[in-house]
Design a binder for these strands. Structure first.
Lengths: 364, 364
DNA sequence: CCTCATACTGTATGCGCATACATCCCCTTC
DNA sequence: GAAGGGGATGTATGCGCATACAGTATGAGG
């Protein structure tokens, strides 16, 4: 405790102190059953005495495996962070009784949940998880070299880079549809989920005037959801549009903007099927603000099943993605591939759940 | 791409192909300015050609630094996860039109935000973040050996273990009060925040019948918040209680239970000051369910400032902890210590913000 | 022309550990 | 009582890279 870290002890130090060879020290950690109890005790004592902690780098190098999984996240949208926060060490407190405006919830529960799932599953297999933000070659330098395999969200790493990395370690891509590459993929059934949602609105609520509010045009998830929407309409004998009515960028504030625009244009359809929850919540905000009633005047639905969809008024009817399971399945897939590199490319699809709540007129 | 990963290329392979020595290859990555352009080009070509990615383990070993920060989280409460999720590779979808009951939001935005802050700040300094769940000696084996320093939430790692680890790498503890140890600490001003909140209720709303709903008795955060509550009352000339009226476990469902109990006992005070948001939200649920009005009949306040506090009806008056900044400050402190191991133990306190919303009668 | 600084590049070594292989000891077996 | 076997431990080597140091080439200065 009051030690000034003179020098990190190594196996050699422990071996000397315990009066054994370094091989024995190593064995005490890796193959305890191959060491006699008496020897083990002496080594343990030396370890405690010296405060020895095995070097992960050396171990990884010698063992030819890192014992870690890499998780690569998209650049936190716009969250550059700026300079580090000021820290007052004198316990000063700033009381702001008039917050200028409530902060927008981060809403990235999606990532958090995926991360959590990854963490849980990796932990169960004795693997650590190393996280990195995709930005420039950081991944290349910081992540790829130190993990046994990598999990990434689709479109977060430039294809060139990913291909390069994939030559060394297996890569699993979460979300998005198979892009003709050779990676393993894990996704949710966007198409079926959205189709079910669409048909529910038509079947259960008798609405035939539906419009789709999409996300970024280059999002494969959005693409699939729109496709599900079209298939749903088609199945109900309704002519599907070739394009979404509007496109947002998946954020709530943008959703609000879209909502306002619709109201101002005076062309609000009976049902607005949104490509994700944030957009739907934003639209909800805008509609309610103008006095329109949901679901009486307009039905609004989302996709994802983030927490906020459950606490809104009215609560949002949506399609829940098993986000945590997504992370877990990705880890499983990765580990399977590590076990058998010759496996053909895998594609896993997780089932979704349609959650019917107030915003579509159910549970009214 | 269609490569079967014959063998991971090393500096030697690259050097051979480029017709240079391994030192030059290494330099191309570490000290590009010391290599002539022509040589660099040849090496780069070889790298691309072979799909070379430097081994993080070898680099860390040779450079004597891992280039990573460890983040140690408490065991996800009760989230064991069970077996991995089933994955259907045929695109099957399960539609559950009657969800048995909405799932309780995970609510662990706190951890997510801290993690995010850590990630952001680490990234700014070219560091990777490796996450691990505190459980048994996993940290010891998996984390401590592979990072340059460690950040942990208070009370998540057994003291013995932490002390052992701290002999090798610096440790920064988040939240909780300084425990007489020699680690660096980063926390928020629980006392001042709660005192300000308490005094606001008395001053602005003229309420003098306040009660405190606490969390686990062994939580240092809870302890400090109660202390702030008492100080607030004292400052207002009100005799403070020696114990919280009730104690929960910081979960929403438990908060609901506490709320019901209060109503049934018929002893609901004019204002309920809760030790965290989840508890407050649970109490809100219970009170509203019995027809009581908030804030007209009862004032309820929280602490933390999680997203859900902003979407509840009425919105929750609370004290916002700068969760993301907490993570960032922890990283900063860690890096500072790495730069100067002889620094005396640091204790940083981040300012909190009192957010006045409907549940206390403001913004009514 | 020779000296010497400058700009590159190569050689050799060690980082801390895992592990194949060799060694040694003690006990069993016929 | 010699041969053989299994358990416990030691010896030696390499994992892939960074880097101190030594070498080479080139051009400037005298």
């Amino acid at each position: 405790m009051e030690n000034l870290m003179p020098k990190t002890p190594t196996v050699y130090d422990v071996a000397d102190l315990a009066g054994v060879s370094i091989a024995t020290v190593s064995r005490v950690f890796r193959k305890p059953h191959k060491v006699s109890q008496a020897t083990k005790d002496r080594v343990d004592a030396a370890v405690l005495n010296l405060g020895y902690v095995p070097s992960g780098s050396a171990r990884s190098l010698a063992a030819r495996r890192a014992g870690a999984i890499g998780l690569c996240f998209p650049d936190f949208d716009g969250i550059d962070g700026g300079p580090a926060p000021v820290v007052y060490t004198d316990g000063r407190v700033i009381e702001q009784f008039d917050p200028p405006e409530d902060v927008e919830p981060s809403g990235d529960l999606y990532l958090s949940e995926v991360m959590l799932g990854t963490e849980i599953e990796a932990w169960r297999h004795g693997m650590a998880v190393t996280i990195a933000v995709a930005r420039g070659n950081e991944i290349f330098d910081n992540l790829a070299g130190r993990v046994d395999g990598m999990i990434t969200l689709s479109r977060t790493v430039p294809e060139r880079l990913l291909a390069h990395i994939a030559r060394n370690i297996p890569v699993v891509v979460i979300a998005g549809t198979r892009a003709g590459d050779d990676y393993d993929h894990i996704g949710t059934d966007n198409v079926a989920g959205m189709q079910a949602m669409t048909q529910h609105i038509v079947d259960a609520h008798g609405v035939r005037d539906l419009a789709f509010v999409g996300g970024p045009a280059d999002s494969p998830d959005d693409h699939d959801r729109f496709e599900g929407f079209r298939m749903g309409l088609q199945a109900e004998g309704i002519e599907p549009p070739s394009e979404p009515l509007l496109r947002g960028d998946f954020t709530r504030s943008h959703g609000r903007m879209l909502g306002r625009r619709l109201v101002e244009a005076g062309q609000v359809p009976r049902a607005l099927v949104c490509s994700n929850d944030q957009t739907a919540l934003g639209i909800l905000d805008a509609l309610l603000a103008t006095g329109l009633r949901v679901p009486e005047d307009v039905i609004v639905t989302g996709f994802d099943g983030i927490d906020a969809s459950q606490t809104s008024r009215p609560r949002l009817t949506t399609v829940r993605q098993p986000m945590r399971e997504l992370g877990r399945a990705a880890v499983d897939t990765l580990l399977r591939r590590l076990g058998d590199p010759l496996l053909p490319p895998q594609t896993g699809t997780l089932p979704v759940t349609v959650l019917l709540r107030e915003s579509c007129g159910c549970l009214a």
